[in-house]
Amino acid sequence: MNIFVNQKKIIIPKESTIISILANLDIEDKYLAIEVNENILPKSEYDKYIIQENDKIGIINAIGGG
C-alpha cells in the first residue's frame, strides 16, 4: 500500500509498523520523533500502531542550526 514518509511516496506491506519502516530505512531509533498525519506518535506505539493507506509519516530529528 502507498504511504508518505517525509513527503515522499513509498510502498510498504500491509500491517507495517513504525518499527518495520525504521528498520527498512536503516534508521536507528535514537534522538528522533515520529508524526503520523501531523500528530506525534508516542514511542510506546512504534510497534503497535498499524500504518494505514495514505498515512503521512514524519521522521523528525535535530540538525545544525542557530
Partner: peptide, 14 residues
C-alpha cells in the same frame, strides 16, 4: 548549543 528541528534526510548516506 542550539539545534534546529527538521524532517530527517531519508536516503542520505547511511
Amino acid at each position: 548549543v542550539t539545534v534546529a528541528i527538521r524532517r530527517m534526510n531519508i536516503g542520505q548516506d547511511k
